[in-house]
Amino acid sequence: MAAAPRRSPSTSKSAIPQLSWRSPQPAPVVLVSGPEDVCAERATATLRDYLRAEDPSLEVSDLRADDYVAGSLLGVTSPSLFGEPRLVRVTGVEKCSDAFLSEALSYLAQPQEGATLVLRHTGATVRGKKLLDAIRAGTGGGVEIACPAIKRDSDKFDFAAGEFRAAQKRIVPTALRTLVSAFADDVTELAAACQQLISDVPGDITDQIVERYYGGRVETSAFTVADTAIAGRYGDALIALRHALASGADPVPLVAAIASKLRTMARVAGHRESSAALAARLGLKDWQVDRAKRDLAGWNEASLSGAIQAAARADLEVKGGSRDPVFSLERLVTVIATRAPYAS
């Protein structure tokens, strides 16, 4: 909580401090902006815990800016008889009503002493821009906590690594990669999985522990199929595919996992830069580049191009273009594992 405020390059025009969602600080007005709800919720909860630790009598109130009753903001921020500190959390600012917008702008001119007003704006619309501009101009003595979307694999890896680092918990790199792969489509579930391992496991978190907890995840099975096929282990790849399907895996994410690894290989192929330089330029992690370089062993431009085309066709077929998606998957695995030309 004592970390010094820092300015984000993306909000360099802002006149107020830009804080990390991992180390928020209270202020009369706190703008929590950006689409990543899991980060926004974490930041808001941390603020609540900090304020409550300072004074257990903290009063917490919640308002919706899009379903707002006139006068509510002043009512919940005004001092009570005994002067307890107040935390007011407002959601839906990106859909705020005219009444809320008007009262919030008036509030900025004279924030209530002892109150912390947290405004959540996802950035989904430009609604409330006048309010955001006023806060960022310094009206109200606010701070901003940015919660940008976590979409790229490297962002998800950094997020998960940060979860364990914040808890002073060690997880071996390969276990972390497996965990991120297991929850590649849902950052909220990834956050919950990290917290479960932090809470449950007394020592270091190993590959075996992650496999025991989350080995049945569809995405983990998908990357196992992809890894064995790309390595040319045809028999193992078919066994892994059948195991994944028998465990209830959906063909769509299976194809997506294979296609994702092939695309990374294609992006890395032919470059002579260091892993660090190439990773920085492509928006990947060093280990992703190193893995792609290892995966490229035994591949050439023609076989990689053919595999990518096969993955594109399989993606179409498992999404309704074929009456037998399992056959489409098996044919894709065959093309990749054998490096054979695509058979129509």
Rank of each mutant, 00 (worst) to 15 (best):
1 M>G: 14
5 P>E: 07
6 R>L: 13
8 S>W: 13
9 P>M: 06
16 I>M: 07
17 P>C: 13
21 W>A: 00
34 G>L: 11
45 A>T: 12
46 T>F: 07
53 A>V: 12
54 E>T: 09
54 E>I: 08
57 S>C: 01
65 A>V: 13
65 A>P: 04
77 T>P: 01
82 F>E: 08
82 F>P: 08
82 F>D: 05
84 E>K: 14
89 R>C: 11
90 V>Q: 03
91 T>F: 08
92 G>L: 15
97 S>D: 08
99 A>Y: 00
100 F>A: 02
101 L>I: 05
103 E>S: 12
105 L>W: 05
106 S>T: 12
112 Q>H: 15
112 Q>R: 03
114 G>D: 04
118 V>I: 14
118 V>Q: 03
118 V>S: 11
121 H>F: 02
122 T>L: 07
124 A>V: 05
131 L>N: 04
133 D>G: 14
134 A>F: 11
135 I>Y: 01
137 A>H: 01
142 G>Q: 04
142 G>V: 04
148 P>S: 11
151 K>W: 00
153 D>A: 01
155 D>Y: 00
155 D>F: 00
157 F>C: 14
158 D>A: 02
162 G>Q: 05
169 K>I: 13
170 R>W: 09
170 R>Q: 15
171 I>S: 02
173 P>N: 02
186 D>G: 11
188 T>L: 15
188 T>F: 12
194 C>I: 11
196 Q>T: 14
196 Q>P: 04
201 V>E: 09
203 G>A: 09
204 D>F: 01
204 D>S: 13
209 I>C: 09
210 V>F: 03
211 E>A: 02
217 R>W: 07
223 F>I: 09
225 V>E: 12
236 D>L: 14
236 D>V: 13
239 I>S: 10
239 I>D: 11
241 L>D: 06
241 L>S: 07
246 A>F: 12
249 A>Y: 02
254 L>H: 01
254 L>S: 00
257 A>E: 00
264 T>N: 10
264 T>D: 14
271 H>R: 10
272 R>Y: 08
275 S>Q: 15
278 L>R: 05
279 A>E: 01
280 A>L: 09
285 K>C: 08
285 K>E: 03
287 W>S: 08
290 D>F: 06
293 K>T: 09
294 R>P: 06
297 A>L: 15
299 W>H: 10
302 A>R: 15
302 A>W: 14
304 L>G: 09
309 Q>I: 08
310 A>G: 15
312 A>T: 01
313 R>P: 04
315 D>M: 08
315 D>E: 12
317 E>K: 15
318 V>L: 05
323 R>S: 09
325 P>R: 13
331 R>F: 04
336 I>D: 01
339 R>A: 03
340 A>G: 03
342 Y>S: 10
342 Y>A: 10
344 S>M: 10
344 S>H: 15
